[in-house]
Structures are given as structure tokens and as C-alpha cells.
Amino acid sequence: MPKNLIDPNKWIDLYSDYLFNFTITRVKDRDTAQDLVQETFFAGLKSMKNFKGEASERTWLISILKRKIIDHYRKINSKKGKAEVRINYKSDSEDEGDWLEERVADPFDKTAEDNLENTELGLAIHNCIEKLPVKQAEVFKMKTILGYETEAICNELDITASNLWVIIHRARTTMVVCLEKNWF
């Protein structure tokens, strides 16, 4: 059986979005999720020699990340009141209000099943994005997921608008084929 090799140089490019998406469905806070992903990469570096090559790099990183997420929940629950209801006024968020109403679950929210399916679909989409060429993946993510303006992307990556649409078109076509195989 060919062994999987480990090469941390490409970790961020290859896996950061996948890990981030995995985390955000579990911790619901961008900053925390980002920190956890960062810690995971560091931890991965530290224990690189323990990587046996039995699983893929990504699976291995995910297993570290899962530990990190559990630790995170342990940490926020370990201090005093475990039974305490924590409704702290967030001082750092500007767009979100502090009103209680905004913190109560939305009654029209999706059912648990929908959520589960959506999480899985989200990971399937990320899998397909990972298979795209790097440039296409980058443009596709910026345009479709982050919702940047065409002009902003063009400036950022130094490409023309028609260039961008060609890339988007190719990416979308590949994505459809990939998802068709794995999901729809």
C-alpha cells in the first residue's frame, strides 16, 4: 500500500478552507473557528513525526482538529458555572445586536435533518473545490462563497473581467460534474 506523505508547505492552501468549514459548523463563531484551525496546523507541525501515512493528510489534520474542538468546549465549560446561562454582551461585534430576541433560535429554522444534510453537502462541495486547479478554486471561492464583486477580484488577482468569467465558467462546469457524481 502506498504511504501518504506529509508536506506542511501546502497545508494552508489545500486544507485551510475545508478545516474552517468543518469548524464553523461546530463552533459558530468565525474568530474561534479561525483560531482553532490555526492551532490545528501548529499541532500538526509539532507531531509531524507521528504521522504514519495510513490516512490522508487531511483526515489526519481533521482528527487533530476534532480534539481541538472538544478541548475548546471543555475549556469554556470548565470554569465556574457549568449550569450558568451565558448571555454575555458581545463587545466586539458591531453588526449583531445585543438583544435577546436576536439570540433565540429562529423558529423557522431548518430541522436537524436539513442541517445534517447541509453540513454533508457543504463538505462535498469543498471536496469538489479541492479538485479544481488552484487558480480556479481561488476565483470560484472568492466569487461564489465570499461574494466579492467582480471588480474587486480582478484587482486582487490582476486579471481582466472576461478572464474571470472564463475561469468561473470552467470552475462551475467542473463543479457540476463533480457534484453530480458525488451528490445530486
Binding site: 506542511p8 497545508w11 494552508i12 485551510s16 478552507d17 474552517f20 468549514n21 464553523i24 479561525q34 484551525v37 490555526q38 496546523f41 501548529f42 507541525l45 447541509n118 453540513t119 453537502l121 457543504g122 462541495i125 469543498h126 471561492k141 472568492m142 461564489t144 462563497i145 465570499l146 486582487e156 462551475r172 463543479m175 457540476v176 457534484l179 451528490w183 445530486f184
Partner: peptide
């Protein structure tokens, strides 16, 4: 194409902001 858009909208898929990713890369 529409199906793809719908799928992406439905999952509320997330990824890192560009500048956050660059920052992470630098630290790493």
C-alpha cells in the same frame, strides 16, 4: 448551473476571508 448555485446557497458554506488566510499563512 442553477442547481449548483442553489446547493451552495442552501449549505451556507463558509471559507476563510482572503486576508485572514494570508495572515494565517504568515504565522504558519
Amino acid at each position: 448551473n442553477a442547481k449548483l448555485s442553489k446547493a451552495i446557497a442552501k449549505t451556507e458554506i463558509n471559507c476563510l476571508e482572503l486576508k485572514d488566510k494570508q495572515e494565517m499563512k504568515k504565522c504558519f
